[in-house]
Amino acid sequence: MRLPDWHSRLSDYIDAVRQTPFAYGSHDCALFAAGAVEAITGVDPSLELRGKYKTLMGGLRQLKKLGFADHGEFAASLFEEVHPSHAQIGDIASIDLGGGAIALGVVQGSRIFVLRPDVQGMATVDLLTASKAFRV
């Protein structure tokens, strides 16, 4: 359930983390998306994962302990899947990076805010590059 002031809370969150460096376990794509969910709903779906890993493989091991193959499967367990063309501001998008790897981002209109380890701060990609989207 979205909070009444979710839009301003999401904007404040995005502004606060815009230049934060990528760091597995504290500010990676999955935790960035979870932070947006917390801004929108008041609930952090990844609270038990924060700070418990320092690499992608470590994060995947933590998710496997919870019964999930990856962060996309974890998102799918929490939210209704919608076609990316129906995603709305604040929804979570899954982007296929190739080779079975995915990234999670936050929908912002026709763009998706994403974090990448090779870029300082966040970047955006076109909404229709998403392979899946999840309604928050």
Score class of each variant (00 low, 15 high):
M1Y: 10
R2C: 06
L3S: 05
S8R: 13
S8A: 11
R9D: 02
L10S: 04
S11D: 15
D12P: 00
D12Y: 07
D12E: 14
T20C: 03
P21N: 11
F22A: 03
F22M: 03
Y24M: 06
S26K: 10
S26V: 06
S26P: 00
D28V: 01
D28R: 04
C29R: 01
C29F: 01
C29G: 00
F32C: 00
A33H: 02
A33P: 06
A34N: 01
A36C: 09
A36P: 02
V37R: 13
A39Y: 12
A39P: 11
G42A: 00
G42C: 09
V43Y: 08
L47Y: 06
L47Q: 12
L49V: 00
G51C: 04
K52I: 01
K54S: 15
T55S: 15
M57P: 07
G58A: 00
Q62D: 14
L63P: 04
K64D: 14
K65D: 13
L66G: 07
A69W: 09
D70F: 09
H71G: 06
A76T: 04
S77V: 03
S77K: 06
S77W: 03
F79A: 15
F79L: 13
E81N: 04
H83Y: 09
H83R: 15
H83Q: 13
P84M: 08
S85Y: 09
A87N: 01
Q88Y: 09
G90H: 09
D91V: 10
I92M: 04
I95D: 01
D96N: 14
L97Q: 11
L97G: 08
G98D: 08
G99R: 12
G100K: 08
A101R: 14
I102T: 15
I102Y: 11
I102F: 09
A103M: 09
G105W: 05
G105K: 04
G105L: 05
G105H: 07
V106H: 02
V107G: 03
G109N: 11
S110K: 14
R111A: 11
A123E: 10
T124C: 02
V125P: 04
D126I: 10
T129I: 05
K132M: 14
A133D: 07
A133Q: 08
R135H: 14
